[in-house]
Design a protein around this nucleic acid. Sequence first.
DNA 1: CGATAGACCTGTTTGC
DNA 2: TGCAAACAGGTCTATC
Length: 265
Amino acid sequence: MPELPEVETLCRDLSQTILGRSFLGARAFWEKSLVLDDCRVEDAVGGKVTDVMRRGKFLSILLDNDFVLTIHLRMSGRIIAEKSEDGLDYERVRLIFSELNLKFCDMRKFGRVWLSKMNNYEKFTGIWKLGIEPLEKTDYKVLKGQKGIVKKVLLDQSVYAGIGNIYADEACFYAGIRPDTRIETLNDRELKRLFEGVKKALNQGIRNRGTSISDFHDAYGKSGKNQEVLFVYGRGKDDCLRCGASLKKGKLAGRTTVWCERCQK
DNA sequence: CGATAGACCTGTTTGC
DNA sequence: TGCAAACAGGTCTATC
């Protein structure tokens, strides 16, 4: 579910709803889902939320007592923010704030919630390894000097942070570039096109409040709309919406990949 | 170095 | 119909 646009949607929702609230505690219903950086949950209790920020696919909640809660949803993670005390299906961790519960639900248990001190959270969570934010002041030149097929480079979080399988395929389609092209064979104009494709795919995802394939929800439990405007992802057996040719499906960089051989050269 | 398989998990879809 | 294999938005580690 969660790539940059989905996490950004969540980040904006949470900023609206938890800024200023006090952190009152946490409960882990699945041990591994909550990871403590040499501290106890009680150490962080009492801190007020000063900021909610996204980096790549990570979401961090900053407290004014020097602690940070960081969340990565991996494949099936969700966050639901609500006052209710009721448990939810697959709820793995509950973060309790004044007048609000953040329920981290994660069927497949790959996701994580980390608690650490401000000065170590990037190292503790792995955020330090991330590359550039593709939507911030930057340009296509980051792609110069990269090696390997385009799909692999786009999925590499240490190049651009936040692109996943859906938006990588959509970006290649918008750019008119085959995802199995070796990136070192692309000229500057093509690299620029690829980068513009990445931005277009991600910005559209954000505008649509995320892609809800089997069930992405924002913090209030509502679905996004981006699945309605995908050109290639998940359409391996269908025809190209632009030219009508049958789409091609294959495995690249270990992930199912779909593209149009006529529209993408 | 790179590409691939296996782990981590559970649920749903596909194919024989 | 039924059951097993394949697959799912991610990422880390081991192996060849």
